[in-house]
Nucleic acid binder design. Structure first.
Length: 258
DNA sequence: TAGGCCATCTGGTCCT
DNA sequence: AGGACCAGATGGCCTA
């Protein structure tokens, strides 16, 4: 998992010695909060917790000690938050590592699992996980199609097919505008005579997209081409994958409840 | 040595 | 009001 704790911060974390914050260098007299590694603070007001120009509501005056304590508290919280995020990332990385080990393009640093034995980067882990989920979706879609064929071939009504496989609440992609397969849509979108499976058609759709190259592992190992969606001068990719609302940077996007 | 990756600090914004 | 979340900035470490 954490096979490479390469940088100083990681080592400090391992030793429970944060670089800054409580018990860190920032607690030392020569390094008060706000005068640590961030030299940009020289240009920014130090600890403007009570003097923000846009802070309309009056805030209680804090002594330097109280400001320092508050800053420590906030830093500690943020550190904890990032550490929790890293724990979750490690858990995801642990799951995804086996699927990244077969990388065939070790040259790209964003390609998951490039050099064997090296830890997946965060972005590689996320890209790999995303593509793997899409792959699982395609597989499930193919399984649905086969089940439908078997049911029809045996003269069995399509009713008994497990409902979970038809509409299990999993947002699968049957077409560019279709996220959830229903029983009817499955029947209508899966011609039994065609030799091309739904998964194949899905991957053929993906094959037209630079973001999702053909082939399961190839797709999983594909680097992200962010320009695929909404880049200036570049028409949005029409493929089903890219039509997913992936990169909504809108500030008004609702957050998940905690 | 440049570039990638990362941890941390920090201020701003949003939510409860 | 306090906490969570986010993004920018910064500096350290590692690898090609």
């Amino acid at each position: 998992m954490m096979n490479v704790l390469s940088n100083t911060a990681a080592r400090a974390q391992e030793q429970s010695i944060p670089l800054c914050g409580p018990g860190s260098v920032h607690d030392l007299p020569h390094c008060p909060p706000g005068f640590g590694l961030n030299s940009r603070l020289n240009a920014a007001p130090l600890l403007s917790l009570h003097s923000s120009p846009r802070a309309a509501k009056p805030q209680k005056e804090l002594s330097p000690e109280e400001q320092q304590e508050l800053r420590r508290k906030i830093n500690s919280r943020e550190r904890k938050r990032m550490q929790d995020l890293n724990i979750a990332m490690d858990a995801l990385r642990e799951v995804m590592v086996p699927y990244a080990s077969s990388s065939s393009s070790p040259s790209h640093s964003h390609v998951p699992g490039a050099p064997p034995g090296r830890r997946l980067s965060k972005i590689s882990t996320l890209v790999l996980a995303r593509n793997y989920i899409l792959l699982l979706g395609s597989s499930l879609q193919e399984m649905r199609r086969l089940l439908g064929e078997v049911s029809i071939g045996m003269g069995v009504s399509t009713g008994p097919v497990p409902r979970l496989l038809f509409a299990g609440g999993w947002p699968l992609i049957a077409g560019p505008r279709q996220l959830l397969l229903t029983h009817e849509s499955l029947i209508s979108s899966a011609p039994s005579s065609s030799s091309s499976s739904s998964a194949a058609s899905s991957s053929s759709t993906a094959a037209k997209c630079a973001t999702v190259p053909p082939g399961p592992m190839e797709a999983s190992l594909a680097p992200v081409h962010w320009s695929c969606v909404g880049a200036t001068g570049v028409p949005p990719c029409p493929c089903g994958v890219c039509r997913l609302s992936r990169f909504n940077h809108s500030k008004s996007a609702p957050r998940f409840s905690k």
